[in-house]
Design a protein around this nucleic acid. Structure first.
Lengths: 193, 193
DNA sequence: GCTGAATGGAACACTGATGTTCCATAACGG
DNA sequence: CCGTTATGGAACATCAGTGTTCCATTCAGC
């Protein structure tokens, strides 16, 4: 018998936690390429049986929610690492850009997820989101960000550039580094006053 | 009996052409919001019976192909209207941006369509695409476009900004005009040398 | 090595979308 | 006004994905 475990996010016994991660990671990688992939495909990609997937996520929506939560956590962690409150706001956004870029497939998924499921956490104001918007406003004040660009537009812009950068590595076959360079170069000029 | 008609794109008799357009337009509007919408939903949105949809497009993929072709035509037309060869290349891109912006839902769909169907026409070099890339190169020469940004990156950038602009009207509830202003403002700064 | 937890696979019922056929009715056009 | 053309709706077969159950097997940890 096991105690309460299986609460909110993480799993309990080592084996279960590992299997759960394997499924979620495989699902993120697979759904980023094809949001309509079946649970059977996810199971195959994770290297487990379809039955096992259903054991961890009785309903498809449960898996989707778990993915959403997982990505959200990664976003929060990346935001923390970017130390948004240090130095000029414009520089902070560049650091954030680099951190977010490392999210990889999770990034792609965030663009396509609205179609996957009506995931409740997106439009809600997350801590990371608020911190971002606050930083843009700080940039308006400290003069490092063009004050003609309101916060929401800058947020959209950053996400778009990140998406473009990833697309650039795929379509133009560019290296991650050169894509990031272009991305930052463009961001810097776009938000400069 | 009807003659050859029904060739490549357009339909034949007036009534058929009108119904066909109604279905395609409804499908574009609907699929832009939910790419997984069923043919029954499309029929309802178009104000016709599900049977009629199947009569025009025996298979779902046929409808998807028709949509792709339709959007592609609109893109070509918009590109022509932008008169890319007139004036400084940077200004030409701004005009193009404005024209593309008017594509509306078609724009949204172009981002999500790769998942809808393996539509052959996307990666193929269309006339509009080549004209675009050529214009960017012209901008590198005439000094109106930052030569550190290669053609493909500028193309990705323009599409991203357009997507952002539309997203901005939805999420931030901005007017089309103010979204376009932000979009152009940002593009101008981003591509300036 | 032993025991319970974890897994894989087969078999099943269920659902929603797709695609087809047929017929009665409405609209179009000369 | 009449015949052709286009349409709507019902009924049907089919199919793929989902979710469930059961059982034999394997694995992990003590």
């Amino acid at each position: 018998m096991r105690m309460v475990e299986e609460r909110s996010g993480a799993a309990g016994s080592g084996t279960r936690a590992r299997t759960r991660r394997a499924i979620i990671d495989a699902a993120i990688g697979l759904l980023a390429g094809d949001p309509t992939a079946s649970l059977g495909d996810v199971a195959a990609a994770a290297g487990v049986g379809r039955t096992t997937v259903h054991r961890y996520f009785p309903e498809r929506s449960g898996l989707l929610t778990a993915i959403g939560t997982d990505i959200l956590e990664k976003v929060e962690a990346a935001t923390d690492r970017a130390r948004l409150d240090d130095g000029p706001a414009a520089k902070a956004l560049e650091r954030l850009c680099q951190e977010y870029f490392e999210l990889g497939d999770g990034l792609t998924l965030m663009f396509e997820t609205p179609q996957l499921a009506t995931w409740s956490g997106w439009d809600e104001e997350t801590a990371a989101d608020q911190h971002f918007l606050r930083t843009v406003r700080r940039g308006h004040t400290d003069g490092s960000i063009d004050s003609e660009l309101d916060e929401e537009w800058v947020r959209n812009l950053v996400w778009s550039l990140l998406y473009s950068a990833w697309a650039h590595t795929r379509t133009a076959g560019a290296s991650k580094h050169s894509a990031m360079t272009l991305c930052l170069h463009t961001l810097r000029k776009a938000i400069a006053p």
